[in-house]
Design a protein around this nucleic acid. Sequence first.
DNA 1: TCGGATGATGTAATCGATTACACAAGCGAC
DNA 2: GTCGCTTGTGTAATCGATTACATCATCCGA
Lengths: 334, 334
Amino acid sequence: MATIQDVARDAGVSTATVSRVLSAPERVSEATRTRVMASVDRLGYAPNVAAKSLRTLRTEKILVTVPDISNPFFSQVIRGVEEAASAAGYSVLLGDTRGEEAREEQFARMLRRREADGLIFLGHHLPPALAEMVAALGPKAPVVNGCEYSPELGVSSAHIDNERAAAEAMEHLYGLGHRRVGVITGPLDSPLSRDRLTGVREAARRHGCEGALVMATGDFSIDSGRREAEALLAHAAPPTAIFCFSDEMAMGALAALRRKGLNCPLDVSVVGFDDTRYAEMLDPPLTSVSQPMEDIGRQVVALLLDILSGAAHGPRQITLPHRLSVRESSGPAS
Amino acid sequence: MATIQDVARDAGVSTATVSRVLSAPERVSEATRTRVMASVDRLGYAPNVAAKSLRTLRTEKILVTVPDISNPFFSQVIRGVEEAASAAGYSVLLGDTRGEEAREEQFARMLRRREADGLIFLGHHLPPALAEMVAALGPKAPVVNGCEYSPELGVSSAHIDNERAAAEAMEHLYGLGHRRVGVITGPLDSPLSRDRLTGVREAARRHGCEGALVMATGDFSIDSGRREAEALLAHAAPPTAIFCFSDEMAMGALAALRRKGLNCPLDVSVVGFDDTRYAEMLDPPLTSVSQPMEDIGRQVVALLLDILSGAAHGPRQITLPHRLSVRESSGPAS
DNA sequence: TCGGATGATGTAATCGATTACACAAGCGAC
DNA sequence: GTCGCTTGTGTAATCGATTACATCATCCGA
């Protein structure tokens, strides 16, 4: 690998000039600039990032942590993150936390050690090491959140209006004549679940159906969807519609219906959340709340870059538009 | 951030001693070691990675490139990669190439610039900059491949036996009495598609059905699966079974059948490839060739670590076991 | 003609670790 | 008492960039 010294020697200038040619070309005369660039090309020189980072304290890397990278919802968000990051000259360090606090901490330490300029966490959990950093630096802390909104964390985030989105999904079901609606939420310690639940309750109240809500708590996985749907269907007065807080749980619910010999949507309607690429491939195609996943990824990067450039003056929330994709899995109440 | 100097001062030793305590404790006396460790803890010291990397020429990072991170097949492999990498003390840099050569090149340059110690590429395309490196360094080049096997590239890789796996899927269909079988392959420039195709042809020949193969070329996407399946079904003598080289294309095929009012498996059987988590959630649950995705990820990391430690002496192939998961989407020929 | 501004370039300190080499102390053998 | 060996620690060079400051030439206006 050629170093800046090699280039300097080759072009007959000092290393300072080479560095300037590369990062502030306007401060160098036309003649030297072309000479240096010729040497750069000839030697195939590229700056050593470790040296650069040691000197500048910047790494041009963004760390993204996610509870489960193999979940298409998250991997789609990450796609947006990767796109926006690399467009801005950053690369992406990936951290799969598997929901384990120890691993979250480990990634938080990477940030403190300056292995990355900033951290994006998808999901709702802010490990102590990060919370500490946010407490110390306030809105200057290079930490942002995607997909959720927890005001108490004090970090910027990009997300949809979960409360309204959930309310609209419920309105859709009430509009179809459903009264007894089952809801399979995510873990209740997540603000995302709580927001959606608020929306659910509100809609139910508007229709005088709050007493007819049947609640179950899942963990966003297919299995929990199946399990909780089975529990709901075993109720004395089973719901005629089930609203799941993720597409995967909705898939589980559909499987549960099939196993019980129930038809969707004739017997029971199902509505999912996320509208991942598979929602419309299910049978019946799944009605689902559509989130702009890649855009969430792009926006959350924009938020982080604002902080890194010093332009941010306080935690900002970006609320992106959602949309209910109505498909065949939801129909009139039986 | 505390530096090694701070720790040295605090503990009353030289920086050399601090460094040794951290990386070669046995060369330091018990007494100093505990004293230094106390200072390390008190100051919350962690080595600056840029400085370390500048000195040692190692980054402890692995770059993983993938054509599409939002594809669950790849994201599952990446999960395995992340797990094995972080267990070995490496972090993962993610590169989504979107199949664009320019981006592939960009990531290859990151390796040359030593932004990562090694590169894992999923998919079959080795960009010129990497090919050059492999040509120059031979099996010492820190480049490995996951999921495919292209002997001509000269790089190690972890994958299943695609030829046999495809042959077994076809055997399954022939065993069910199918004669006229449609096959939707991936792009034919990929060795993976060619290997599977070889297996397909072999099985067909064994059953004297080579002439009854109906071929179509997809690109692994849902859309192409739908499109190609429609084309196959429009044939004068349409196939009674369709074998798709990815689950996503199989989903597209199922959708095409549904649209045409055909029943799967009564009218047409469908077999997929990959056995992603959604295969069994489809209706009908999809018969699919199961690949050990996370394990491919783990093994490919192991291959890379072998190269990095100097233990590797030539390109190695790790063939992992596959299995045909038979479900309801494949049944007796009508 | 001279002072000062402007522009182009070079000198060298610096970032924070690792590690080859030097050195001192302690100890046993002769 | 000295030699040689081992063990523990320190000194300082080094990795490859960036950048504050110094220097020098040129040019312009008074």
